[in-house]
């Protein structure tokens, strides 16, 4: 599904990603954890094609395609979805209108007929119910004045409508109460299939109780410093990141 090789990326001349290697197979769920500022969101944005980030070395292959060559909208049309850590407020753009434009843009790209208003409504209605979304949010401007939890739910709602092949969730669990967390997890799990993969960026083991990862990676200073199974998340929860970091500096010292 996704092969990231020796990925280096800079923003405003600062190198943030310093050689990421990661392979995500079809149907797998990978969790990425790591301290604040370690580059988790940067990795997510680079995968989504944010124009502020410059890839200086390495490659990303997505379903055999050179991902880095694609415009952000093409990546989305090819099935990549980024749930933003901080969803953007867009005053003046109706949430339903926006989502319909997104769905139809993707359908058009795939050579499928565009949905009319009725068809779109029918699809959306089910998902709203599934996610326990407040109906009125659909008729409000995108994320404008939404609470933190409403914004996150909106991301998951969009994801469930767009049905991505590779979803990257950037701290979608942060700031959620336990009910909302469950809803988010259900949204993710309902999409789980042998053809779809998910990268979950999180600081908290509790989300991983609901979305069980196949692999857990720890990102530190722009590199993946440790990978393991789901037990790694438990260990991190118990011990924090410092043991890994000190581990690593010990290893680095050994090399020198």
């Amino acid at each position: 599904m996704l092969q990231i090789k020796n990925l280096h990326a800079t923003v405003d001349g600062n190198e943030i990603l310093r050689g990421i290697d990661l392979e995500v197979g079809a149907g797998e769920v990978h969790a990425i954890m790591g301290p604040n500022g370690s580059g988790k969101s940067t990795l997510a944005r680079v995968l989504a094609g944010h124009p502020d980030y410059e890839v200086t070395a390495g490659s990303v292959t997505y379903r055999g395609l050179d991902l880095l060559e694609m415009e952000p909208e093409v990546r989305a049309c090819e099935g990549i979805f980024l749930a933003f850590q901080y969803p953007v407020e867009i005053p003046g753009v109706n949430n339903a209108y926006f989502l319909k434009a997104a769905v139809n843009s993707i359908r058009k790209y795939r050579g499928l007929p565009e949905y009319d208003a009725m068809e779109f409504l029918a699809i959306v209605k089910d998902k709203i119910k599934l996610l326990g979304m407040d109906q009125t949010l659909m008729q409000r401007p995108v994320n404008d004045g939404f609470s933190g939890g409403e914004k996150k739910r909106n991301e998951i709602f969009q994801m469930s409508v767009l049905e991505p092949t590779l979803a990257v969730l950037d701290e979608t669990d942060s700031g959620l109460d336990i009910d909302a967390l469950r809803v988010v997890a259900e949204g993710v799990n309902s999409l789980r299939s042998p053809e779809r993969s998910t990268i979950v960026i999180t600081h908290y083991q509790r989300l991983l109780n609901y979305i069980e990862p196949d692999f857990v990676h720890v990102l530190s200073e722009g590199r993946i410093v440790r990978s393991g199974g789901r037990e790694l998340a438990l260990e991190l929860e118990a011990k924090g990141y410092t043991w890994i970091e000190s581990d690593r500096s010990a290893a680095e010292l050994a090399v020198v």
Partner: peptide
């Protein structure tokens, strides 16, 4: 906002249009 729209599959010209109309 432009990136957000594009990340949802909306091509840049259309995304700009949506924002200008907004």
């Amino acid at each position: 906002a432009l990136f957000y729209l594009r990340a949802r599959g909306i091509a840049e010209p259309e995304a700009r249009t949506i924002l200008v109309q907004a």
